[in-house]
Nucleic acid binder design. Structure first.
Length: 466
RNA sequence: GGUCCCAUCGUCUAGCGGUCUAGGAUACUGCCCUCUCACGGCAGAGACACGGGUUCGAGUCCCGUUGGGACUACCA
């Protein structure tokens, strides 16, 4: 009988969830969902100094926004201290760990000295055989075997091996009683029965240490899969300075969650030539075998392309609803979802984000003046007076505000005035939208309405001194 | 410095020894469509890091070089 697939995502609340974190969360989630397994959320908040409660809230919010729901948790390491202590004592009793009262500052000084000498900075094991009791000022170190090789078959990278002598006796419990990362992770993954540890390959060098702890505990290690890191444009680990924003910043920018998950899924993973994946397809096709080994560089352009794809695919009614909060940010406070849907339908092919869409939608709600300077200079000239006047008259006379009616109006106007269609369209466009580029007049005028259209034409006429 | 990981168009990638004069996507350029801008359609340019092997045959396997990255804490 195959054992149940159980994966976990374990962020530390020392900052917002960023793209890299979302990437590994997604892969864990997809793997669990693909296998009908369990996805666990665990908050690694043992760093009391840097952990903040509000980051926990933000991380959960971001995961939920992305649609990455968890089946168990969130567990908090800070609430599991008694469990870690049990395992510490197991190790102590077995002689696989020992207490150490070396002064941290001294240790740091020795580290620096070794570095300066060009030596490998490693703990010299001076407390190893001292048999110190566990006291209030003692840390606990793991007794790393000094010979032999620790290896595993990585589900993504293949066979990886480390010589044990490269490793030193790491602290697994700090003097303040809090376990360190490498130890807490192992205890958690054991007790939560995690079957697959899928994480960034910056954790590869932690893996042999963790495997050694499993062995000392007499436990079977889970399967490891180290996925390639996401790098910034300068090819270093992705961070704020690459413009890699927190996940929620993408939401606030008007990126759709489907676009972001699609983007993240295709970074480091592929399914033939397919680029667009529904959530169901992602779950159906995802597998570790098709995760690549090479790191990927974050490319905002590709994200934007996917976002515009999903913007085009989203039904206008939904798009209108999504647009409302972005309109508000433009100072347009409306709850008219019907109008917003009509507006969105004219803009969904012209914007890459909801934020852009809201900016482009301003003229539907606000007076288009003052006009864009260059647009007005070019198109709102005295020569345009007849166009504006005639258009105003015919609109007032009751030209039908339909696609066909307005198309005919533009053509007739051009013919009757002896100019090209573009020469009637552009002045009208600037008069109505304030800009030289906009959705088609035949679709924007019906939304503006007859009265408002005429009002704007009158203003333009007066602007030209008519 | 040490250890480990990685290496196909600028970027994301397909490729699991012959079907590769290397495919798709994005970005870029041009043309078409067109009331503008987009969208869409078509076309173009653009890569197997280098050197050795193995093999009848290597982008694909092995070794080395170079390059890049990660880690190197009583952070996670």
């Amino acid at each position: 009988m195959a054992t149940q697939v159980r994966t976990r995502f374990s962020p530390s609340p020392t900052g917002a969830l960023h793209l890299g974190g979302a990437h590994t969360a997604l892969f864990n989630w997809l793997f669990a969902r693909h296998h009908g397994g369990v996805f666990i959320l665990r908050i690694e908040d043992t760093d009391m100094e840097r952990s903040r409660a509000h980051f926990v809230e933000e991380i959960l919010e971001a995961l939920l926004w992305l649609g990455l729901d968890w089946d168990e948790g969130p567990y908090f390491q800070s609430q599991r201290l008694a469990i870690y202590d049990d395992f510490i004592h197991r190790l102590l009793k077995a002689g696989a760990a020992y207490c150490c009262d070396c002064d941290p500052q001294e240790l740091e000084a020795r580290r620096q000295a070794a570095l300066a000498r060009g030596d490998k900075p490693r703990y010299d094991g001076r407390c190893r055989e001292r048999g110190l009791p566990l006291g209030p000022k003692t840390a606990v170190r793991f007794k790393t075997p000094q010979t032999g090789i620790t290896f595993w078959h990585d589900q993504i990278k293949g066979h990886i091996a480390f010589e044990n002598q490269e490793l030193d006796d790491l602290v697994i419990r700090r003097a303040d009683g809090i376990p360190t990362y490498n130890f807490a992770v192992v205890v958690d993954d054991i007790t939560m029965r995690v079957s697959h540890v899928i994480r960034g390959d910056d954790h590869i060098s932690n893996t042999p240490r963790q495997i050694l702890i499993y062995q000392a505990l007499g436990e079977e290690p889970p399967l490891f899969a180290h996925m390639p890191l996401m790098l910034g444009k300068d090819r270093t680990k992705l961070s704020k300075r690459h413009g890699a924003l927190p996940v929620l910043a993408y939401r606030d920018r008007g990126i759709l969650p489907q676009a972001l998950t699609n983007y993240l899924a295709r970074l480091g993973w592929s399914h033939g030539d397919q680029e667009i994946f529904s959530r169901e397809e992602l779950i159906r096709y995802f597998s570790l075998e098709h995760v690549g080994k090479a790191p990927g560089i974050h490319d905002d352009d590709k994200l934007l392309w996917l976002n515009s794809h999903y913007l085009k695919e989203t039904p206008p009614e939904e798009l209108g609803r999504l647009l409302l909060p972005f309109l508000a940010k433009e100072g347009i406070h409306t709850d008219d979802a019907v109008k917003a849907a009509r507006v969105a339908a004219t803009l969904n092919k012209r914007a890459k984000t909801l934020m852009e869409m809201a900016q482009a939608a301003r003229f539907y709600y606000l007076d288009p003046w003052p006009y864009d300077e260059e647009a007005a200079r070019k198109h709102l000239t005295p020569g345009a007076l007849p166009v504006l006047r005639e258009a105003r008259e015919r609109l007032a006379a009751g030209v039908e505000l339909s696609e066909e009616g307005l198309t005919r109006l533009l053509k007739d106007l051009a013919r009757d005035l002896g100019v090209k269609v573009v020469e009637v369209a552009q002045p009208l466009r600037v008069a109505l939208t304030g800009k030289a580029a906009s959705p088609s007049l035949t679709e924007l005028i019906p939304i503006l309405g007859r009265e408002e259209t005429i009002r704007r034409l009158d203003f333009a006429l007066r602007h030209l001194g008519a």
